[in-house]
Design a protein around this nucleic acid. Sequence first.
DNA 1: ATGCCTTGCATGGCAAGA
Length: 270
Amino acid sequence: MRIATWNVNSARARVARIQSLLTEHDIDVLAIQETKCTDANFPRADFEKLGYEVAHVGYSQWNGVAILSRVGLSDIANEFPGQPGFHKDPQQPQKIEARAVGATCGGVRVWSLYIPNGRAVTDRHYTYKLHWLKALSEYAASSLAENPQQDLALMGDFNVAPRDEDVWDMAAFAGSTHVTDAERANFELLEEAGLTEVTRQFTAADRYTYWDYKGGRFYKDEGMRIDFQFASTNLAARAQKGFVDKEERAKRGSSDHALVLVDYAASPTP
DNA sequence: ATGCCTTGCATGGCAAGA
């Protein structure tokens, strides 16, 4: 089964590109982040006509996550248990944002995840980000404790560069989010929960999954590795190969993130 | 130091992104 994740930076602005990559790469399941639209505005029919079932969670112009699957799609969840909320006003009730959608596709429990950016280390959004990662790891740990043999995949834009080599210049990130010890520690909690990050082993030659639009970063290859796929033990053991689609990122009008794809061998028949 | 670019929207200058 071929599973990919892609922060598309607006689903409506990039419908044709998403359709192209689904076909070009023969993708079974695609997790999308930053659709930037409500459920009513998500271009669902454009993917259904290609044979994909669709799960989308979008409450406004911000965030928005989706799963497209041609190997079945059931038991849709609009958030994970314990998912923290946010509101710009700390006095207001903190609301769950459109940052997680789960569905079972071809026997794999798939989550498309858009981890909060953090904005600045002094911002409430940064604390929110740390809590969000911790809560996600706790959910993963409890799900794996319940069923250690399951095929579970958590993928998306994690907004953390876990190693110094995952950014082009650590000095450029002094005092910034995405590279702090606290963010890296909470990213690591996912591994401690029993998940394995499976994309890095196949994509060492392609260091990055994101390049800022500003300042011609892509052409200077000044990027960040912040998009990942985490898999449960049984699923991770079946990861065969993977790649980062830098060609698409090089095109005019592309997303600022690249698609990250992994092939998994079929589950042994029980 | 700031903008560098791109998106969506009350189509305005913002907010947000990383």
